[in-house]
């Protein structure tokens, strides 16, 4: 009896601590016959476009369902290295894809299908009149960027370096979504994000065009995996993404042509 308060609290501690974590990014698209299900692992920034394209693909190929798993590129590659079943992978940068090439896990050489550039996200209406990278160095402007450990952070550091601008960010986020939400909620005045993220419907931010951002492009490669359950179907989906017919969807989202 004397011990139970501490024990109850300890049990609750464990229950509470488990509250965060899992980001639930596996989007099951129908539960059809597993033999005709194509498992596509794609970078988080491809969520809107790949969801739309998967619908088109399913309509064009009756009987095939596409199961999409969206996460950060680094996470996706780690999942595949640890044996997660996947047929196709599309990452947001080339270094992460190289980790799979190095371990001979790909069925073919990866092909770049889109590019993405950086832009400055600001509050709608741009109340502070931010017009370029040099404005981010001002002391009264709160800036948020991605940490250099993640692809968007590497690109941001490169871009700022080339522009010769020194920025002291108030936060270095793990993902571009973190930067977006800090700007959208008004916690920060500006943030470096991908053009496609700022352009997405409901992003809550406005983009400031950066002519110099064309010099630092993230290239998105795609490839079928060696361990694909149906290598033919996997290769077919890769061709579908690389085809001109998919181009319109990527253009509309703000992706560049490689």
């Amino acid at each position: 009896m004397k011990r139970w308060p501490a024990l109850t609290a300890a049990a609750l501690l464990l229950a509470g601590a488990s509250g965060c974590g899992g980001s639930g990014n596996a989007a099951d698209r129908g539960s059809g016959d597993s033999h005709s299900a194509l498992r596509v692992f794609a970078a988080a920034s491809l969520t809107a476009t790949f969801t739309e394209l998967a619908d088109v693909y399913e309509q064009e190929n009756p009987g095939t369902t596409v199961e999409l798993n969206f996460a950060g590129s680094s996470d996706l590659v780690s999942q595949i290295q640890e044996g997660a079943p996947a047929d196709v992978i599309a990452t947001a940068d080339e270094p992460n894809m190289t980790r799979l090439t190095d371990e001979d896990l790909l069925a073919e050489a990866p092909q770049v299908f889109v590019t993405n550039s950086l832009t400055i996200a600001v509050a709608p209406g741009n109340p502070l009149g931010i017009s370029g990278l040099s404005d981010l160095a001002a002391e009264d402007i709160t800036t948020v960027v991605c940490a250099v450990q993640v692809p968007c952070g590497t690109a941001s550091a490169q871009l700022l370096d080339r522009a010769g601008v020194e920025v002291s960010p108030v936060s270095e986020e793990n993902a571009v979504t973190g930067v977006l939400s800090k700007v959208a909620t008004g916690q920060a005045d500006a943030g470096l994000v991908y053009t496609t993220d700022a352009a997405a419907e409901g992003s809550g931010v406005q983009a400031v065009d950066l002519p110099e951002s064309a010099s630092v492009l993230n290239r998105y490669p795609i490839s079928a995996l060696q361990a694909a359950a149906d290598p033919e179907a996997a290769a077919e989906f890769v061709d579908f993404i690389l085809a001109d017919s998919a181009r319109g969807v990527f253009d509309e989202a703000g992706f560049g042509v490689p």
Binding site: A147, V150, G178
Partner: peptide
């Protein structure tokens, strides 16, 4: 972890606690 990264952000020495550092290092 969750409330911190949402509310406080992540900056070395200021707001990046051990769980946030683990989450970031996991990438690189």
């Amino acid at each position: 972890f969750g409330a911190t990264i949402t509310f406080a952000g992540s900056l070395q020495g200021v707001t990046r606690t051990l769980p946030l550092e683990i989450y970031l290092q996991r990438e690189a």
